[in-house]
């Protein structure tokens, strides 16, 4: 009854490989030592400094503003793109699909360079707006793809049924189609949010004066050699990202049920 040790060892190795660097960062954020290395005792002072650092607060604000607006834009545009892709099948739509799909596979640096050249050509000033537009270009694909997946599973005879029961075309869309595909839109939105939150490459090309986001700030402060607060900052980012992923994982299943209880309350 001797089981092979190999699978277990592989698992441990993988976990160590992926999470040791993260663990080092998190532990480091509580280590009372200026340059890492030895453990010099527990401290929260980096978190304290972080909160008081105006530059970081500004960067955080920029990041959140951009992530919020690009997510919102992508949820609307991506859902519309998915509808168009699903409803009308033609040559042109194949082209459309490739356009939507390409940001998922194109190297990010290419996206960054081309966007930079484009904004240069049209004479736009780099800043928050250009970063926002850049993020929309690639986040859009993720929303469109998740919604398209959900739409492909959608049974359009439900719309016929709703209209048969007296709902106008718009009411049927609002009361039947949207609630059924909502988990897809929300999952796509959360994905877009995390992607926008930690994007570096595209942002780096498109940021101008006063439009530093957190990833850009982290990069530049490492170059300046001040890493003390970065561990704490990274630990926070890590937690936030994990939270978003967990939320997005659970909403998909939860949403179907919450819709039901909401309706039940309305009737009861």
């Amino acid at each position: 009854m001797k089981r092979s040790l190999f699978p277990g060892l592989t698992l441990v190795f993988c976990l160590v490989f992926f999470y040791l660097p993260l663990a080092v960062v998190v532990v480091g954020s509580f280590n009372d030592s200026r340059f890492g290395g030895d453990w010099r005792g527990f401290t929260l002072k980096y978190y304290n400094q972080l909160l008081r650092d105006r530059e970081i607060r500004g960067a955080l604000e920029n990041t959140l503003v951009i992530a919020f607006w690009s997510t919102l834009t992508c949820m609307v545009l991506g859902t519309m793109a998915a509808f168009a892709l699903h409803r009308h099948r033609s040559r042109l739509q194949f082209f459309h699909l490739s356009l939507i799909y390409s940001p998922l596979v194109a190297p990010e640096i290419l996206m960054g360079i081309s966007l930079l050249l484009f904004f240069g050509a049209v004479g736009a000033d780099l800043g928050m707006t250009t970063i926002y537009l850049g993020h929309v270009t690639f986040c859009l694909s993720y929303v469109a793809m998740t919604v398209l997946g959900r739409l492909q599973d959608f049974d359009f005879s439900l719309i016929d049924a709703a209209r048969d029961l007296g709902a106008s075309s718009w009411t049927a869309t609002r009361k039947i189609l949207l609630p059924v595909i909502a988990p897809g839109i929300i999952a796509g939105g959360l994905l877009a949010f995390t992607l926008s939150l930690d994007d570096f490459v595209v942002t780096f090309f498109l940021s101008g004066a006063g439009s530093k986001t957190l990833p850009i700030y982290i990069y530049s402060s490492i170059k300046r050699g001040s890493t003390t607060k970065l561990n704490a900052l990274s630990a926070i980012l890590l937690v936030v990202t994990f939270l978003v992923v967990i939320i997005s994982h659970f909403t998909a299943g939860r949403l179907d049920r919450s819709e039901k209880t909401k309706e039940a309350k309305a009737s009861g």
């Binding site: 016929d160 709703a162 007296g166 009411t171 039940a264 009737s267």
Partner: peptide, 19 residues
Amino acid sequence: ALFPHLDVFENIAFGLRIA
């Protein structure tokens, strides 16, 4: 073509609520 996000009661009530 029952509405998957609604329960039995709400499926039947759909037309009445629209009205």
